[in-house]
Amino acid sequence: MTIAPKYRPFLTLYYREIRRFLKVLVQTIAAPIVSSSLYLLIFGVSLGGRINLESGLSYLAFLIPGLVMMSVLNNAFQNASSSVVSGKFGGDLEDWRTSPLTPRAILWALSFGGLTRGFIVGFITFMVGQIFYLNNHGSWLAVAHPGYLLIFLIIGGLSFSMFGVSVAFWSKTFDHLSAVGSFVILPLIYLGGVFFSLEGLHPFWQTLSKANPLLYFINGVRYGILGVSDVPVETSLIVSGGALIIFYFIALRILNTAEYTRW
């Protein structure tokens, strides 16, 4: 199959992104798996036995989809943002800018790069969760709606990669980048329903949680795996899809107007 020359810069950068995170496998793949495994062990297995959900699900089963999506979102964001930031330091951004790579090609290549890493870490997290589930329940956790699962993982991974690209291009220092990670992403993910269900919350906190877009990303994946969700899957789909479109246009605007000169 011959690839048209105009797609080659995009595909090359996408391939380069994959090569980049595979070169530092321990940092990019192994470390997130360790943290996910610890979450599963401590929350899912150790504390989960004492938590009863109204839906009748085991807490471990409830936790697995949340952790899978958390892995995808975190890794997509980190992969895309670290690529841009290291490019700002090393001067790679100047190379990208002076080559036939368009801002749109850069955005999609970095986004698919982030999505790929997110998928790998998310899949391994799911498999580790399956082992814990098998050990606790004596059976594998069946995936209820694989199509929905795939759609929400793709939307989440792409959205957070684009968010990572935007933040990294906007950042003037490392502090800016880490501030967004600590004060925006971490609270949104943790309060987005990874560890808890809306059903047990006070109505005020339920309303507040519904303003968090990540609730819909995470519940979308939960619906995909378990077939249950705190919000209707159609709502999750609309909010997540809308978020992806917004992330895309913000990122594209930033890339079109950004300085590609080094820090």
Partner: peptide, 19 residues
């Protein structure tokens, strides 16, 4: 320009692809 992770030949292969 410091390309960090990549070897000289890899850098040239990528650069070629960008073009």
């Amino acid at each position: 320009i410091n390309h960090g992770f990549f070897s000289i030949e890899e850098i040239l292969v990528f650069h070629s692809g960008f073009y």
